[in-house]
Design a protein around this nucleic acid. Structure first.
Lengths: 211, 211
DNA sequence: CGAGAATTTGAATCTCTTCAATCTGCGTGG
DNA sequence: CCACGCAGATTGAAGAGATTCAAATTCTCG
């Protein structure tokens, strides 16, 4: 508790819908998310939205920023967020690689993006939802934030829709059918997965695919 | 011509459908593609395929390999390929960053993946095709392989379908309708774009989006 | 308790898929 | 030189999955 005094100098807070980074901005720091969720997304001119990444507690936001000169996708808070700010040395690309676990996080982030690509390109609604919820549960579990078979999931159905490339209405109906089959419970921002194996089967993952 | 003798020691060739890297393999070298096209893809158990990256002449294949311990997506030649092999120092992640333009290529590759995510998640068939063909033309142009408004495009409609998340049949019909509207010509592996601006409008790109 | 946000429901519609069959271009072997 | 075979492209008809729009209901939070 005592050393939080020193750490608190780097603590930053965001409210839902607040930008962590805007489009065409050069981020000068990364955020280590302590609490809350955020997303990176893209808006089309007619309002269609695609979420391209989700950030959970424990995630670095965003590992990709070390690579690009400007950030062409805004990052927005989905909930209240508490994060620690880690300054980026823009002039020197190598520094980041030496930070503990940075390279691993970047790799994970890129691999996740590739998984989503497969999901959006070739999977059905049920498969996409199974995949996404499985991924999120697994990430929460690794972050030490899963309790048995359940974890927090502070996304609206609209958010889920924009992450999976579906409409909110269709997400609603598909989740209902999955609930009725007993493969998951999801209400009041709380996810429970009675049978991980069953959900994994629904997600159409290969035996080698990590979630 | 004379110094090609030395360089030729690193020259490698591939035939269509040949693997540059298999799944779960640790690549020990990158390929600088001199001639021909390749793709990275993922196969679902029931045969559905999603292409997650395309490699053109001039591309490094694959920048992402420096990040991951094993490659979980196979890379396959789509045409005859001539490439130069560049050994990877696996033990040391930093070396690669110092290679000329490496970091830039990695960033481009990641950004492209993000663009595709938006395309697959939120765009219509026409928009996806416009976007893809525009991207490929632009990349060919930058590689010095475009001639006026046209360039080679050695993909089958099946390949295009697997890159855009559509079926070959639907790609065929959509391309036909685009042809009939005069926004593009595409036959015998050759692409011509009469009006880049018109195609760009069809691609639903933001004013800031690079292709 | 009231108001706005999020979820749920229904009905109609549309885009894209599926399954087959046919056609075309092209290299190979007789 | 032509017939064969095969991969890719094209076409048609029917159907599935997801979208759209609008309204009603429930939730959440000040």
């Amino acid at each position: 508790m005592l050393n939080q005094i020193a750490a608190s100098e780097d603590l930053v807070f965001f409210r839902p819908h607040q930008f962590l980074t805007r489009e065409n901005e050069r981020p000068d720091a990364l955020f280590d998310i302590v609490e809350g969720w955020a997303c990176r997304h893209r808006l089309l001119s007619d309002g269609r939205r695609q979420i391209t990444a989700l950030y959970l507690p424990g995630d670095l936001c965003d590992p990709l920023w070390s690579l690009t000169s400007t950030c062409n996708e805004p990052v927005v808070a989905l909930t209240n967020i508490r994060a620690t700010r880690r300054t980026l040395n823009v002039a020197d690309g190598y520094i980041l690689d030496r930070q503990k676990g940075f390279s691993t996080r970047l790799a994970e982030s890129v691999e996740r993006q590739s998984n989503w690509l497969v999901s959006l390109g070739r999977k059905t609604a049920v498969e996409r939802l199974a995949h996404l919820l499985l991924e999120l549960f697994e990430r929460m579990r690794r972050a030490g934030l899963a309790y048995g078979q359940q974890c927090a999931l502070p996304l609206t159905q609209m958010d889920i829709a924009d992450a999976t490339g579906l409409t909110a209405v269709h997400v609603n109906r598909t989740l209902q059918s999955m609930r009725s089959k007993g493969v998951l419970e999801l209400h009041s921002k709380w996810l429970r997965i009675p049978d991980l194996g069953a959900l994994r089967d629904l997600a159409a993952l290969g035996p080698n695919d990590a979630v």
